[in-house]
């Protein structure tokens, strides 16, 4: 620090020498004297401010918050429909996965309103009556470069739904969908903790999360190039 100051001092002293002797000496530039001290506090303020920005403000700015079109109650459906998740999210006969049910599956029970809630009436009026598919926001949506097969994980790998999807089946209200403004994908992919730290397998769905399990379970760890998982397992 002191060295910097000394040098800057020297520069200031040298300045008059630079002026040509022919011209009348000009008054020193009208700069105000550089305040001394306060450098460390400024530095610390910078750190603290950026920490606040990085940890608190940035996530707020990065994600937009969207409400699902219908406040869906998973818990009640699991109870009423039965057969756990497979009551609605089932495998078709050819082994393909049905994913999020289409409207006709909902209509099997909801052709008429069940109960008297405002949500239910809205749902019937807006979607069932008009035959419009519900534009659900998908928390688990992956980019198109990723090939994912539910059959490979559930049928062949005997995994539980909750390993990746957590306790969504027990939720009574649809969570707010937070969309990354840059990528357009859900916050659930990176994970809600902006640091990327997770405690449970279902808290994030990045490539590293897939790879970790693929490595542990020895899924096609046959790539000649990487000596690890074969890239083509997911990136077809």
């Amino acid at each position: 620090m002191s060295t910097v100051e000394e040098k800057s001092q020297e520069v200031t002293e040298e300045q008059p020498d630079d002026a040509t002797p022919v011209d009348p000496p000009e008054p020193p530039p009208a700069t105000e004297a550089e305040p001394k001290g306060g450098i460390l506090p400024a530095f610390l303020i910078g750190i603290v401010a950026s920490l606040i920005v990085g940890w608190v403000v940035f996530p707020q700015l990065l994600y937009s918050k969207k409400r699902q079109p219908v406040d869906f109650n998973h818990a009640i459906h699991v109870r009423e429909v039965g057969n756990d998740c497979a009551g609605c999210h089932y495998f078709r006969e050819d082994g393909t996965f049905s994913g999020i049910p289409k409207l006709d599956k909902c209509v099997e029970c909801h052709a008429e309103p069940i109960g008297i809630s405002r949500e239910e009436a809205d749902f019937i009026e807006k979607y069932v009556a008009t035959g419009t598919e519900v534009p659900w926001y998908v928390y688990a949506k992956q980019p198109p470069c990723v090939f994912f097969s539910h059959a490979a994980h559930i049928k062949m790998g005997h995994m539980e739904c909750a390993t990746c999807h957590g306790d969504i089946g027990e939720s009574e209200h649809a969570r707010v969908y937070q969309e990354n403004r840059i990528t357009g994908y859900s916050r659930d992919i990176w994970g809600h903790n902006i640091s990327g730290y997770t405690r449970h397998t279902w808290e994030s769905m990045k490539m590293a999360d897939c790879a970790r399990c693929h490595q542990k379970e020895n899924v096609h760890q046959s790539s000649v190039q990487t000596k690890k998982g074969a890239c083509f397992v997911c990136h077809k």
Binding site: F43, I45, G46, A49, V53, G54, F58
Partner: peptide
């Protein structure tokens, strides 16, 4: 002042490096 401003900027850079912001932005 110039020095404080620079110190604030350096502090900001150091602090930013301690947040997930650059890595997360790069990934996004």
């Amino acid at each position: 002042g110039r020095r404080r401003f620079l110190a604030f900027g350096i502090g900001g850079a150091v602090g930013t490096a301690l947040t997930p912001l650059p890595w997360k932005l790069m990934d996004d």
